[in-house]
Nucleic acid binder design. Structure first.
Lengths: 195, 195
DNA sequence: GTCTATAAATCGATAGAC
DNA sequence: GTCTATCGATTTATAGAC
């Protein structure tokens, strides 16, 4: 018979499930403790603060998200598809993890202060910027930065669209927008200068 | 000599200045009272709750934003420019009012519950959807809905990009993305069917 | 209409025992 | 490592006087 996971894991599981659906600031520590069936003292023994628990949950999210994105980039078979794999990965990721919109942007919106949590949010943006620039290079050459900026904005727009009550169609629209941008760079002769 | 504005106006001014820069939930009523130099009792006599004050501040924002957008649409002199005036209006609006990203999306992100506040957020999205569909009609004809969706997503992406620390370049990138989408529809013969 | 003072509730974190 | 009980701070909202 299956052993019950340790308190630390139960806390992280509960945090991941509730925090980014109900909101980080909106969810009291109490709620996490109830869902994980853990006492306050145990939680503070493991993490030291709510902030630290949130940061650890976010780091796990970022790590998993990176994996999913990687897999979809590898599965794609041409340069444009690899660039747009971001949107396919998003669709897949949203099926395995629940979140109202984007855990990182949501946390950025709620936490102005600097600290451990803000660092993970920054790391997410850095990951997106670097990888998109890399993936845009074969498509747009010397103008890769421009294209990467456009794809990141379309991706960010897709995520924020969920706040407007838009259903999954936002992924389709965002992908289409990014595809238009990619094609615009493909037919542009100046863009292949650096390839 | 200038008469001091009544307490109600001072409260709304302070709310507009602080609430959407520091965050609605993050800003205590106390802070607004101090900035407006108004006592708690007076505030609750006028508005009844923090929620109601926030809602009124948001309604004023929406009203002013609509004015600015209108002016930029009227100033534009062709169909594509009128559609993209949204981004020029945003640039202008951001110079006269301070906000971390978008007052409406930020409020949507912080408030899950239904109520007065959520209604204003919904009204903002409805305003954008309806007007963009109208403005996209002359450009994309029967495919106006597709184009309107794309422009709204690019706009939403521009706003949310501010959370990533992107400076004003987000407006430029978003506008470029929307322009690509518009041009893609212009050269598409199927899109003018309904014009 | 506006004030001072305080109630009432919520929430993050700790003390001390097992 | 984990628990029960509680502290201390913060925050929304109200009571009662002027």
């Amino acid at each position: 018979m299956p052993t019950r996971p340790p308190a630390r894991d139960r806390l992280l599981t509960a945090a991941d499930a509730v925090l980014f659906e109900r909101g980080v600031r909106t969810t009291p520590v109490d709620e996490l403790l109830r869902q994980a069936d853990v006492s306050p003292a145990t939680m503070y023994a493991h993490f030291g603060s709510k902030e630290a628990l949130v940061a650890e949950a976010l780091r796990r999210r970022l790590s998993r998200w990176q994996q999913v994105w990687d897999a979809h980039v590898l599965a794609a078979d041409d340069d444009v598809s690899r660039l747009l794999a971001l949107f396919d990965a998003l669709a897949a990721y949203r099926e395995e993890r629940t979140a109202r919109w984007c855990a990182f942007l949501a946390t950025a919106a709620e936490h102005l202060e600097e600290g451990e949590v803000a660092d993970v949010v920054t790391a997410d943006t850095a990951l997106l910027s670097e990888r998109l620039l890399h993936l845009a290079r074969p498509v747009a050459g010397a103008r890769a930065q421009e294209l990467a900026d456009e794809v990141l904005l379309a991706y960010t727009g897709t995520l924020a669209s969920f706040l407007r009550g838009t259903p999954d169609s936002a992924i389709t629209v965002g992908r289409r927008l990014a595809e238009s941008a990619a094609r615009a760079h493909l037919v542009d002769p100046a863009s292949t200068t650096g390839s």
